[in-house]
Amino acid sequence: MSGVSASLTGASGLGGRSTLVGSAGAAQAGIAAAAARYSRAVDQVSSGRAIVQPSDDVIGTDKALGLRQALAAEERYARASTDATGWLSATESGLDQASTVLNRLRDLTVQAGSDAMSAQERTILATEVRGLREELLQATNTTYLGRSVFGGTTGTGKAFVEVDGVVEPTEDLGAGAVRRALAPGVEVRVDTSRAQAFGEGDTSVFAVLDRVEAAVTAGSAESSTALADVDGALGRLRTAWTDVGTRYAQVDRLRSTGEDRSLSLTAAKAGVEEIDLAKSLMELSMHEKAYQAALGAAAKVVTPTIMDFLR
């Protein structure tokens, strides 16, 4: 009989015979398994994380990494949109200032169009026009954090400089436009082209101003002609201003959708990475009970034997 496997001839292998070593081993394995589940539940509740190590939830890990990457991008977009708002606000105030100057220039030009002006009065008007130039230069050189908002990517902090009495745009060595990425795939230009806002060459506000100065001195007819020049400059300025306003609204919209996106990403990340506290606590107490039950069962593992009934 010893040659035949008892595990084959026995009724069901494991259940065939009840041995001391066998039942002790089974009880021990039960305790170890219950303890492992309990300790994992404790880990989750104490750390607050559903994914203690990546293998706990591979798909969750992948998702969490993706969500974290997207959240980091949203943080960059949020910072960039604050920066863009700063640029556009500074641009608006620069355009506001320039428009005040140009309106004053227009008033002066209209005044100079009157035939009643004496030569001396014209000289005074011309001096005032001259004075506006300084103010206009300041407006066109508006800066934000040390960078000229109309200067594009010039290395200096200025968009225009006065050289030998003539105001000229500074040289732009870079790409010419300053852009901020504000959403996935969306870039918004935050500077404003000086050519668009202030004209270039003959149409440049400074050229216009120089011409107005000459016209004011020359006489009423010339001044009336120069008025069209000034109106042209004002028109360009208004167009640029409208453009800035549009972009300002766009940045605002992008920021608010970005915040929404950020919130939903944070919620999704929490859903993947963090535990549902109520559920985890329930599981914890369940595993605790299971562990205690395993211990209790092990205490009774030495089943009564016939020895208890023999004297």
Binding site: S5, A6, S7, G10, G13, L14, G15, G16, R17, S18, T19, L20, V21, G22, G25, A26, T305, I306, M307
Partner: peptide
């Protein structure tokens, strides 16, 4: 378990 059941001692 199978080996224990068939070879260990049943008191």
């Amino acid at each position: 378990g199978v080996l224990t059941a068939s070879t260990a001692v049943d008191v």
